[in-house]
Amino acid sequence: MDNTLFERYQKSLKKERRFVRLYQLVILLLFFGGWELFSRNDWIDRLIFSSPSRVWLTFVEKVSDGTLMIHVSVTLMETVVGFIVGTLLGTLLAMVLWWSPMISKVLDPYLVILNAMPKVALGPILIVALGPGYISIMAMGALISVIITTIVVYTAFKGVDPNYSKVMQTFGAKRWQIFKEVILPASFPTIISTLKVNVGLSWVGVIVGEFLVSSKGLGYLIIYGFQVFNFNLVLMSLLIIAVFATIMYQVVELIEKKLIKNQD
């Protein structure tokens, strides 16, 4: 075998990767650099669009007086709980539907209606019902993802090749055994991809929830910043949300790698 060819190929791969990283960095620097430049020269409205340096100053100030920590942890907690509850509840509902074809037939139109309805519109009702606190915000984060999770995961359950179940049946497997050994593991890839969607959805639910009610959290900071016309604060919160949403997404990808490394 010609090893030099292979080495050259590997080198070209490495080179390409470095280029991609470089361009990604350039875009990032251009974005923040341009933002700063435009703002300093008054090419954009400094009051509305702020600037990276001012956002940074706000960030430092909020970190040093200790308030940012509280806001971030509140929102993060609400989002993570909303995300987990939404996904688990959705998967559980999907299990019920799979278990009983009768229930699934009966509930079908209701699922369609619930899915089509904008869940954030339920916000006011939730707040009245559950009180203006963490609970209703977490409920919001969960509610926004639960129906779509149910539909997608149930579709995945139904889509599993029936011959796998047939194999189990010939071994005299009970229905729950078929579920545990075949249906669930076969659906992991789909469940994971709904997790990825749900990360984004839960953030929407929680931030909207905080817009409506609450005196803590990043959603609150955004609304507060907007009310007192402090857009440094708004943009800082947005950037923090972007960072944490990305981290959550990465965590899900990590789980994905661990869970489905052996599937075709």
Binding site: Y164, V167, V182, A186, F188, N262
Partner: peptide, 9 residues
């Protein structure tokens, strides 16, 4: 069965 239907996981 016609195919092996081994469980890939």
């Amino acid at each position: 069965l016609q195919q092996d239907y081994l469980f890939p996981w």
